[in-house]
Design a protein around this nucleic acid. Structure first.
Length: 570
RNA sequence: UGGGGUGUCGUCAAGUGGUAAGACACGGGUCUUUGGCACCCGCAUUCCGAGGUUCGAAUCCUCGCACCCCAGCCA
């Protein structure tokens, strides 16, 4: 079933674009780009940017480019390029023929740098890294001019050429823009625009030993590609004057408009590459695609759908204020989507054996079950019923508290699609007192779960599985990674790692599911009725032995009642 | 008096001088062979604060306050 995406909401970027179109700027065209650096995996914060850039382009009949910002060969690898492409297209976006690499422009960028030198707007500086930092001044004090600032154009051109030829050591010289060492904006204090890096580049090999810095490469790449709106995150706001300065200094034909928005933060998780890396390296998660990770690959493995993520990105909006979105919204979005598309099934996570005493020993019935009440076209299936079944341990209480509607001694409930059953006995372990088994009787007049002719009503419907026919599987229950809503809040406070939730993963090796699920395909999804949405793990499932990941629980009114009761007692 | 940003419900977020949208969360209810879904009701007399302009201010002005970003030859 197709799920509709949320209708676009008003935001400041759309307003800007609409005003531009109205004024016929850029001939009314809209060209955006998503410019990841291939040095790591994408997370849901990137998804926000992807949805924004590709979404805007689609909405206004424009195009969105996928451009790898690969100007630092030391940190970048091809492996990431493939994973990023996979994630972007998995999210549902198509860059068509517009796949680019900043490294494709190295030649043009080099010429731009030479032109800047010719115009007296750039110079080769021999200061060491440390000296450059000293000359830069501080936040409150102006910097001072480099002694190399007034070299002649000829000398600069020659030196820059020789930098390119590999005549100088790494770190011995850089090319700097000649702007203003007294600027309040540190980015304008003669920023480095080219550095010597004798490193092998994953695309250009050993062709270059000088590489452009982000500020130089990015604006020019945008300009070369005819980008109209260059959308980035807030921390680049201070770079906008430099972005504009470079394009102006070169009289660039196309001068894109940089627009900044606030990056995404989510409760109960962390989003920075560095922090996620700490979780991976420390072995707190199984990898970048661990289902608890906020990475696109983690969400995918967890069972999140592209539509649910797109929807989420639309719902959170786009603005400039720092914010932390409640992860409950993400969970809402995935439930909303999965409710429409996930086939229902029954699975018992913590099995409790139930013997139906008045049901014939060797009888088995095939009962009809609805595959998806939200989608009639999904049809029905047959499920086996027999004398011994499993139900959820949570669905029985020997001494039921108020508002507990489920099974209890002497009480009658419905087994979904099967029969009404009444609890007639509890079998316990003599020593431990642990409940080993329940004895029940069933009412043959309630076949299919229908109400009996006498009009008896029942307050609960339980899921169950026939012991003889069920498939035994492993189920993994995931919870939030951190116990604090904002684990990395504030400096000086406790380190975010101290808030790791020790119970974020619970493995249940002995669960029982409908026989039809024994061969469930990795990646397939389902709803275990009354429990939640699950997907078959793509990494650890084996043929005939699926491993189920819980994507998200169903909303659970009873659990909330119990929780608030516990709180009340405290 | 370094520069640049941002402050609207618990959390996101519209609003652009005409009298505070929506979503999530939360609380209550209807329905129910999922305590799911769906549906209904409630949830900011007030927009960081204080002044001012105006018939009228979240929107304009003034002065404060708080928070975020910037001193990589990272992006």
């Amino acid at each position: 079933m197709k799920s509709r995406d949320t209708a676009p909401a008003s935001n400041f970027i759309r307003s800007i674009i609409e005003a531009d179109i109205k004024a016929n700027r850029n001939d009314g065209k809209v060209v955006t780009r998503f410019p990841p650096e291939p040095n790591g995996y994408l997370h849901i914060g990137h998804a926000k940017s992807i949805c924004l850039n590709f979404g805007l382009a689609a909405e206004y009949g424009g195009t969105c480019h996928l451009r790898f910002d690969d100007t630092n060969p030391i940190k970048e690898e091809v492996e990431y390029i493939e994973s990023i492409k996979h994630d972007v297209s998995w999210l549902g976006f198509d860059w068509g023929r517009h796949l680019y690499y900043a490294s494709d422009y190295f030649g043009q960028l080099y010429e731009c740098a030479r032109e800047l030198i010719r115009r007296g707007r750039a110079f080769v500086c021999d200061l060491s890294g440390e000296e450059i930092r000293e000359y830069r001044g501080t936040l409150t004090e102006p910097g001072k001019d480099s002694p190399y600032r007034n070299r002649t154009v000829e000398e600069n051109l020659d030196l820059f050429r020789r930098m390119k030829e590999g005549e100088f050591e790494e770190g011995s010289r850089v090319l700097r823009a000649r702007i203003d060492m007294a600027s309040g904006n540190l980015n304008m204090r003669d920023p480095v625009i080219y550095r010597i890096l004798k490193a092998y580049h994953h695309r250009t090999g050993d062709k270059w030993c000088i590489y452009p810095m982000y500020d130089f490469a990015h604006c020019l790449s945008d300009s070369i590609e005819g980008i109209t709106h260059s959308i980035c995150t807030l921390e680049f706001e201070d770079h906008r004057p430099l972005y504009d300065w470079i394009l102006d200094a070169l009289d660039a034909e196309n001068h894109p408009q940089q627009i900044e928005f606030a990056r995404l933060n989510l409760t109960y998780t962390v989003m920075s590459k560095r922090k996620l890396m700490q979780l991976v390296d420390g072995g707190y998660v199984s990898g970048w695609d661990d289902p608890r990770m906020p990475t696109v690959s983690g969400l995918r493995r967890r069972g999140y759908t592209p539509a649910s993520i797109r929807n989420f990105c639309e719902k959170i909006g786009v603005a400039k204020r720092d914010s932390v979105v409640d992860i409950a919204l993400l969970e809402h979005c995935v439930r909303d989507d999965l409710n429409r598309r996930a086939p229902r099934a029954m699975g018992v996570l913590r099995p409790l054996r139930v013997v139906i005493e008045n049901y014939p020993v060797d009888r088995t019935e095939e009962l009809d079950a609805v595959n998806n009440p939200e989608d009639a076209s999904a049809g029905t299936r047959k499920i086996p019923f027999s004398r011994v079944i499993y139900i959820e341990r949570d669905d029985f209480r020997e001494a039921p508290p108020k508002k507990f509607f489920r099974l209890a001694p002497g009480r009658e409930v419905r087994l979904r699609y099967a029969y009404f059953v009444k609890c007639t006995g509890v079998v316990k372990d003599e020593n431990t007192g642990e409940i080993k088994e329940l004895r029940c009787t069933y009412d043959p007049e309630t076949r299919g779960g229908e109400s009996p002719p006498d009009g008896r009503k029942v307050k609960a419907t339980l899921h169950w599985v026939s012991a003889e026919h069920a498939a035994r599987v492993e189920v993994r229950l995931y919870d939030r990674l951190f116990s604090e809503p904002v684990p990395d809040r504030g400096k000086g406070g406790p380190d975010f790692m101290s808030f790791i939730n020790p119970d974020s993963l619970e493995v249940l090796p002995e669960c029982y599911v409908e026989p039809g699920l024994a061969d469930a395909e990795p990646g397939s999804i389902c709803q275990f009725e009354r429990l939640g949405y699950f997907c078959v793990d793509t990494r650890d499932s084996k043929p005939g032995a699926p491993v189920f990941n819980r994507t998200v629980t169903l909303r659970d009114t009873w659990a909330r009642i119990e929780k608030s009761r516990k709180k009340g007692k405290k």
